[in-house]
Design a protein around this nucleic acid. Sequence first.
DNA 1: GTGAAAGCGCTAACAC
DNA 2: GTGTTAGCGCTTTCAC
Lengths: 354, 354
Amino acid sequence: MKRKSVTSRDVAKLAGVSQSAVSRSFSADAKVAEKTRKKVLEAARQLGYRPNSIARSLITRSSRTIAVVAYSLENPFYSVMLEKASRYFQQQGYHLQLFFAPSDNGFATVIDDIIRSQVEGVLMLAITMDSAQAEEVADFGIPFVVINRTVNFDGISQVGSDNYSGGYWAGHYLSSLGHRRIAYLAGLPDSSTDLQRQAGFLKGLADVGVDCYAMEVGNYCYADACHATRRLFANSTPPDALFCANDLMAIAAIDTLRHEFGLAVPDDVSVIGFDDIPMADWPSHSLTTLKQPVELMVLKATELLMAQINQIDINTEHIMLPVTPMLRNSTRRSARHPKENLEEVSDTHHSSVR
Amino acid sequence: MKRKSVTSRDVAKLAGVSQSAVSRSFSADAKVAEKTRKKVLEAARQLGYRPNSIARSLITRSSRTIAVVAYSLENPFYSVMLEKASRYFQQQGYHLQLFFAPSDNGFATVIDDIIRSQVEGVLMLAITMDSAQAEEVADFGIPFVVINRTVNFDGISQVGSDNYSGGYWAGHYLSSLGHRRIAYLAGLPDSSTDLQRQAGFLKGLADVGVDCYAMEVGNYCYADACHATRRLFANSTPPDALFCANDLMAIAAIDTLRHEFGLAVPDDVSVIGFDDIPMADWPSHSLTTLKQPVELMVLKATELLMAQINQIDINTEHIMLPVTPMLRNSTRRSARHPKENLEEVSDTHHSSVR
DNA sequence: GTGAAAGCGCTAACAC
DNA sequence: GTGTTAGCGCTTTCAC
């Protein structure tokens, strides 16, 4: 029963009013006599009329749409974020357009597409950009917020967490447990999160005079992390501890250690992850990890975006949230009471630029 | 460096051509002299002009946008689907608007919003609709495809899999393993998937003269499934087998059995799931489950949507794909060689209506 | 091949 | 309050 699009004009005709009266009747705060609105609404109902938001967007010059661009949803950390952000925007009366970063370097294409769409803001989930791209993007005057990736450019807002301190804690903690063959399972090479976690980790080890025993790349994904773990442990004296740049890889590592190498976690190997995804707390892995405050990250990012959209605060900001060690059972028990370890390992940093 | 929107008019002025020449230069198949297009493109580059797709949509009356409405992304089954569908649409030159079904019954609001958006098609991921809603929705003449939920109305396309046969297989298989206290962990009450899996399961048991030993509701989510498992096994003679309406709940059950009840899976209890999410194959759970062909489901659904959008096939279809038992290690070893079990448990059904 | 002109369906002044 | 009018930025005839 395909009906051709019925317009406000048709409704006006049926209701015996002007077209603008119809328009007014469909906007909440408009001066229309209650009687007229009733008449209009009834005519609209009869015809099955719905205001065309595209036309509305064109004239009001506001699409009430946010673009979210993601890299992948394999990691629950991001699907959780997407859902939370999405619900937030929806509740604020915004639409959400979802984009995936193409694997080939089609970043520019996606950005072009987004700009043409007239979205009012863009939220990037773990999308790596170089400063040239960032500058280009910022130049359009549309608010951008990048979550979980540092961009070397002030003109774009960023919210992330204190990866360096988290890494530092991991290195320090593993060595404090008595481990001496401590390895690193890296995430996506050259991603800011990996760089920072790694740097902190190495410093944490160096400060107590320990070297990183081995290192392999797992690209933040389960399958690659399994392979990396195999390479790491195919050794006559394998590592006795492992810091993984995210939880998904830590879980892959634990699975591989237990089921392929017959090693016990934490008895033979201590494992630490990063993120605190829901699965980290499941008893099958009970993963010691560094919790990123997802909820807060999304909140900050969405609020930042909204503030910029509503011109409340035109400044871009770089927000760094603290991470919290979650001591569970993938790491060997500490000799001393690990009370102090349960606190946040860093303070919130907050900088306004411009 | 906020620039006010530059329009095709501005570009025309700078390039010394008419506004329509600019328009033509930005459409791939248009009769423009290569020389003119060069001039225009250069002027556009200088001004940072991007065609406004909202204006374009208004006049062409096509938004090139698909709406996807989801219920939750907690289950990787759906985040995987979302990503796959999203990439498909993106590659076809379509945008994707994401909506979440509100928990309160705001379904109508979301639908209204979607219709106003002038999207060209709607993909619903596991969204339950009654036939009244379905009829209302179909009445707008915009193509709808529902994935993984049966709707009691022919005017809407559906793609799902053979839940009944899957459930039947689970019941039959668990009893063939020698289990006699076989319980069911239900999904969302009244969801078509749960109803069908449950019905098939009960029939599979009944056909060999076994009753369902116990039943609890886990709402397709991890936390609720943990509670349900506790209720199920807080019993002096607990179940010795469990069929869970999806993998997420099966994993929750296994975790709870192992870590709270000290029961071994599969030695003390056999567990079967449904979906075959990536985690099901991880060695930590190695879950026997019924594989839904996600890839194929997405493909069918997206193709169906596209066909309807492009008027190639105006008929709605109900597609039922076969499920495949994946024998892993959460179920007791079969005495006889379980070769026959590895085949699809049903044929593909395919019906065109209208 | 190019420009002028006519809208797409709506909102927002502006008079009355 | 209500209708009239003038666009939003673009695509698309239609003459030339």
